[in-house]
Every structure is written in structure tokens, then in C-alpha cells.
Design a protein around this nucleic acid. Structure first.
Lengths: 193, 193
DNA sequence: CTTATTTGTTAACTTAAGTGAACGAATCTA
DNA sequence: TAGATTCGTTCACTTAAGTTAACAAATAAG
């Protein structure tokens, strides 16, 4: 399982056996049960997550109901806003499948930098890449209709549509569950005719 | 004008006079005229931008018309997706006001790191903060209606509504120009009644 | 196994966004 | 300055999403 992580890191920087052992010694791999709440609204967490296996989601509670805004699956990383801004979290993080996560804490930063000095460089490459990607996703969202967004998701992350409850998918697509049902029926009708 | 940049950097790391001089010696400050196209679709640019004064926008050309997806104003930074992904750009970048920009090139990276070793650390802090913020903006967009998005913009970036053409604002809000006009009229009507 | 809760779909109705066209007003250009 | 283009708004009409409610299927709880 850790090999997945090292393969991932190798995409950005070269990594020695010593560094691999140093990372393992940090003891940051966690097995997390489906349903676990990793972060609650109002909390001041310092934890970041990297998904090795499974799925976690972020959601807001607005007017009493949940609005799911993102899913993180294999090889996705998430540093909650509250960690960088040092303000209470506006949203929840929830583990929706039995998962294996890498959980790091900003308090460990000094230790990480000592044991693994290339950490900053790697993070800079990684987070600037993620930022650019996130912007493109946002652009795509802005410039397309709900139906196009659904079709796009079907292309790019077909697994999500299978592994995730529809009502969570709906808010992820920026619409209501009823609209998602209708939209899917509409598409199916088109394919027939 | 450069003081603006140094004040900005100081929010993340401490910076010495020597380092300030080193940054100035990189010769990266540019005055750019309104209307200038900084990046075109299909180009493989290595340039990143930091706005000291003025405004630049990113836009796509889809089915022959422009879709504006973002505006960058004072103290905003933009590394185009093509720079990190090393693939041709999907979008344009356009200077929409006479501006003063800091323009850096990935070819300069080695020189920057020599002259200003804290650069990586600063970038990591900066881009991970930006990433988290961008996600929150995306979340907000997903969970609100066009009208709410407009009212939200009115609160958070009232200057944008003044300084930017309405048809560009419309696609930034994910709607058509006609819908933006209608939506504004609707709000005005509500305020009266 | 039975009951309660959650989840997904369908339907009727309301509301708002998309579309295509028209029209001044502002801006640019020759 | 005259003519062309761009820009913002309005209108009538179409299309699709929001809303409220009902109901069946799947899942969880007792």
C-alpha cells in the first residue's frame, strides 16, 4: 500500500530508500471506517489527508441539509481550508468508504522537514499543479450546463457515479436530486430516440 | 510599486534587504497596456503572473464566443495550467486595464532559487493557501444560484462589477448576459417593493 | 423478521435561465 | 463627423431547474 505513495511521490521528485524509511517512521498511515467524520464544522483542525484507497467527501450543512462539494478518491490530496487559514472549518469531511489514508499534521512539519528535506519542493510542485487543475475544473463547471456536467463526469470519473449516492452526486453537480433523476431520464430518452 | 510586492511577501516569510535587491535584480516588473493578449489558446507558455496594479482575465473561446472564467486584480497571482501541465493552453489571458505585472518564467527558476532561497517555502505556503481558497470559492459557486452569486460578488468584490464589462461578468457568474441584466432588474424591483 | 429511515424516482406546478431578435447608447474607426 | 461595431437592456418564447408531494426500493435498526 505504501508503494502507491512512493510511486506517487516519484512523479515529482527522486526519493531514496533512506527517505522512504524516514516517511514510514513518521507513522502517518491510517485505516478509517466508512462513516467516520474526519472534520466537523467549527473545528480548528491541523490535519491534511491523502487517499491511498477509498473515498472521502467534503460537505456543508446549509439550511439544515447537506451540500456535497467534493469527493476525494485514490491519489487525491486534501488540505482543508481551516488548516491554511487557521479559522474554524465551514464544512465537514466524511469517510464514505472503508479507506486507507495518509494523515499528516502541521505540528509535524519540522520533523517532516528534517527527515525528508525535499518535502517543501515536492509540496510546491504538487499544490501548484493541483491549483491549476482545480481552476480548470472550476472553469469547466462555469461554462457548462448541469446536463453537460453530468455527461462530462460520466467520461472523466465514471467510477464516482457508481460508488457515490445520487443525492450527494446531485449537489456535487450543483443541482437538486430530483433534477439529477430527471436529467438522467432525459439523456436515456435521447439515446433511445 | 515594488513595496506592494515586498509587503505581500512579508505576510508569508521574513525578507532581508539583500533578498529584496536580489528580487529587483531579476528584472521581472512589466508595465502592460490594456488589451494586450498575454497568452493564447494552443501556446506552451512558461510565464506566471502577479498583479501589482490593474486587471487581467482568463477566457475560453467556445463555439466562437468568449467565456470569461476569472479576473485577477491587485495582489492576485496566476500560474496558467499549461505551465504546470506542460500542455498547450486551453484558454486566453488578456489584460483588460493598463497594468503593472510581475512576470516570472520557469526558466528562471534556478536563478531565483539561488538569489532567493526561501522561494520554494514561500510558494508552497502561498499556493496551498490559494488552493484551499479556490476550493471554497468553487464550493460557494456550486451551492448557490446565479442571483445569490451576483449578490455575493457585490459583497466581496464590488469593484469588479464597476471595472469589468457586464457580458464578461455574466460568464464569470456562469450565465448569459441577458440573464444578468434580468437578474439585476429583478433585484432592483425587490428592493423597491 | 418487522419496522423505520434513507434513498431514488416520478409527477404537477412554479420559477428562472437560455434563445433569438430588436433597439438605443456608447465606443471605436475611417 | 459619419458609419460601423460593441455593449447593455428589454421582450416574447422555449427549455430546464426548483419545489412540494407522493411512493417504491433499498438499507439500517430493533
Amino acid at each position: 500500500m505504501q508503494d502507491l505513495l512512493f510511486d506517487f511521490i516519484s512523479k515529482y521528485i527522486s526519493i531514496s530508500e533512506d527517505e522512504k524509511n524516514a516517511i514510514i517512521s513518521l507513522d502517518i498511515f491510517r485505516s478509517v471506517k466508512k462513516g467516520t467524520i474526519l472534520l466537523k464544522e467549527g473545528q480548528n483542525s491541523k490535519e491534511s489527508y491523502f487517499v491511498l484507497k477509498g473515498c472521502i467527501r467534503t460537505y456543508y450543512v446549509l439550511d439544515g441539509d447537506e451540500k456535497t462539494t467534493a469527493f476525494y478518491t485514490e491519489m487525491d490530496a486534501l488540505t482543508p481550508h481551516c488548516v491554511t487559514s487557521k479559522t474554524p472549518s465551514q464544512y465537514y469531511i466524511n469517510c464514505i468508504e472503508d479507506s486507507i489514508l495518509l494523515i499528516s499534521n502541521t505540528d509535524m512539519e519540522e520533523e517532516v522537514n528534517t527527515k525528508f528535506p525535499k518535502f517543501d519542493i515536492m509540496c510546491r510542485m504538487f499544490s501548484s499543479e493541483l491549483l491549476a487543475k482545480n481552476k480548470v475544473d472550476f472553469d469547466e463547471f462555469k461554462t457548462s450546463s448541469p446536463e453537460q456536467r453530468y455527461l462530462n463526469l460520466l467520461q472523466k470519473r465514471p467510477d464516482l457515479i457508481q460508488r457515490v449516492p445520487q443525492h450527494q452526486l446531485a449537489s456535487y453537480l450543483g443541482i437538486k436530486p430530483q433534477s439529477l433523476s430527471r436529467l438522467k431520464a432525459r439523456i436515456l430518452e435521447k439515446d433511445k430516440g
